[in-house]
Amino acid sequence: MVKQTLDIVLNPLATLGRYSRLLFHAFGAVAELSIYRKNLWEQMVKSGVDSIPIVCMAAGFSGAVSTVQTAYQLVTPLIPRSTIGAIVVPSMILELGAVVTGFILAGRVGARIAAELGTMRVTEQIDALESMGLNSIGYLIVPRVLAGIIMFPVLYVAACFVGIGSGMLIGDLGGFVPAEEFLVGAREFFQPFDPIFGVIKSIVFGFLITSISCFKGYYTQGGAEGVGRSTTQAAVASCVFLLLADLVLAATLL
């Protein structure tokens, strides 16, 4: 009984410790990046460039929906219509651009990384790499995490651009607010720190999603079922820690 209670406390701590050790090794292997440069480019294309369409689509819909719903909620004639822009644009830049991108990539990139690494683990390809004298962490994990850190801000920018654009377009076409008024409102309440905060968020999210997925995949155990479990856990844990990080960042930086 006592042991079970202790396990509840100790297991997460042990997991955190293993995660930290993996990251520690990964940082130590950054120096070897020049050897595995080709891997980095490949991961940047797979995680970043190839994700642009899905991220743009999700951000476009979320921008359009925020415009329509904000317009629906603003029924008072006392409030100018430009307020729609003043609400949609900052919420896109501060929250939706980064979080929507994060969720999409937790599913698309996190699951892929966990499945790749898990399969390599259960088919003993990672052991083979090690026996060939390659640093498996430097070869497999560092390029993936770095690709996430570099490409997530890029995807964030794309998400904001498309999200704000679609919000403005829907506002204009739907007759909620003309594009000019939308932009006037957005510019009147624009804070220069907002996009910087968004970029910081996206860097943190990119790091969290890729590193958690790498951790789950790298330590996969037990055949095909284990790979499936790792993939699920990678996606779920990425989303949970993304939300947690979102709150922590908002509380500390804003």
């Binding site: 490949e42 940047m44 294309v45 570099i150 490409m151 890029v154």
Partner: peptide, 10 residues
Amino acid sequence: SNEIKVGLTI
């Protein structure tokens, strides 16, 4: 090449 794609995107 992957480099060109990534560079252009960034």
